[in-house]
């Protein structure tokens, strides 16, 4: 879908521009936004690479120190652990969110009024800040005074945030609780664009609902799945707020994802050099994953598979 759509905007832009003579005001209009973005987006991105070759405690002088920080981080077992934890969060939340949002998205694509109401309610968790969600779930999951203890359901009375495996599960659950509605909405849009005639033809051929889902809906949603997966996977490399407030990376280092590792090294241990190394690694992983998913999708436009499409 986005492969087809991606060609259109470029084409129409060219057509729109063709009859005009050069307008000298237009480049000026783009200048303020460009300056802002370069100052606080592009420069920091280059800056973080530069800082990864320096020693800095966050307050004093910045001194060039070559590959010291890189050697330190690459030799630190914490890096492998951080990568593994980040990968776990990414893979588990993808595995939970994708089937669930597909299922909900297909259902919400129906035009019945109550389904629209459901979609509105589903969207509510997305309005809450991650900090608010973490604070609320911490109280809700408390083994002594939380919801489970209050209801007297033994299964729900667990040391949710004190057990490494459970804490990981809790994070995946809360991430899904927060973001499934968003991806369901993307799938809802995708399903509504599938030509109805395809289903009618399948019905005449005697295909059941399940068969229709696997032979029509799923293949037709290929690009939507890639868009949604890219947002999920690339987003999960940078999870910070929720985990910071909920577990602080604990118990122990069980949920210390890369973004948290970067923060702790930089702003708590005052080691900005190694923290910048982690930041560079985060950028590289994010870009690598986005490119990988684009290749799987076979889209030619870099933005197309990710966000473009209207």
């Amino acid at each position: 879908m986005s492969a087809i759509a991606s060609g259109a905007p470029a084409g129409s832009a060219r057509r729109a521009a063709a009859p005009h003579t050069r307008d000298r005001v237009l480049p000026l209009l783009a200048l303020p936004a460009l300056l802002f973005f370069v100052a606080f987006g592009v420069v920091p991105l280059i800056g973080v690479l530069v800082l990864s070759f320096t020693t800095w405690d966050g307050i004093g002088e910045i001194t060039f120190s070559g590959l010291t920080s890189w050697r330190e981080v690459l030799a630190d077992p914490q890096l492998a652990h951080g990568l593994w934890v980040t990968f776990q969060v990414m893979a588990l939340s993808w595995l939970v969110q994708t089937p669930a949002s597909l299922l909900l998205g297909v259902f919400l694509a129906g035009h019945q009024r109550y389904r629209a109401v459901l979609a509105v309610i589903f969207f509510i968790p997305l309005l809450l800040s991650s900090a608010a969600i973490a604070v609320a779930y911490q109280a809700l999951l408390d083994p002594n005074f939380g919801l489970g203890a209050g209801l007297g359901i033994d299964l729900l009375v667990q040391d949710w945030l004190g057990d490494p495996k459970l804490a990981m599960g809790v994070i995946v659950f809360i991430v899904s609780w927060q973001f499934i509605p968003f991806h369901a909405l993307i799938y809802q849009g995708g399903v509504r664009q599938i030509p109805r005639s395809m289903y009618e033809a399948a019905q005449i051929d005697g295909a059941g609902r399940v068969r229709q889902f696997f032979s029509i809906t799923l293949p037709q949603l290929k690009y939507t799945i890639i868009t949604s997966s890219t947002l999920m996977v690339v987003g999960s490399v940078t999870f910070f707020d929720l985990i910071f407030v909920l577990t602080q990376g604990g118990p122990g280092d069980a949920t210390r994802v890369l973004a948290l590792d970067m923060y702790k090294r930089g702003f708590q241990a005052n080691l900005m050099g190694p923290a910048s190394v982690i930041a560079v690694i985060i950028v590289l992983i994010g870009l690598g994953l986005a490119l990988l998913l684009r290749r799987i999708g076979g889209a030619s436009n870099p933005a197309a598979s990710q966000l473009d499409g209207a």
Partner: peptide, 26 residues
Amino acid sequence: LRWVNGLFLMGLAIPLQAAVIPVYLI
């Protein structure tokens, strides 16, 4: 302007978390 457009498209991929240390410095 085509270059500006491309820059903003690439900007979609810049995570705030990764840029926060230089932003702090600035």
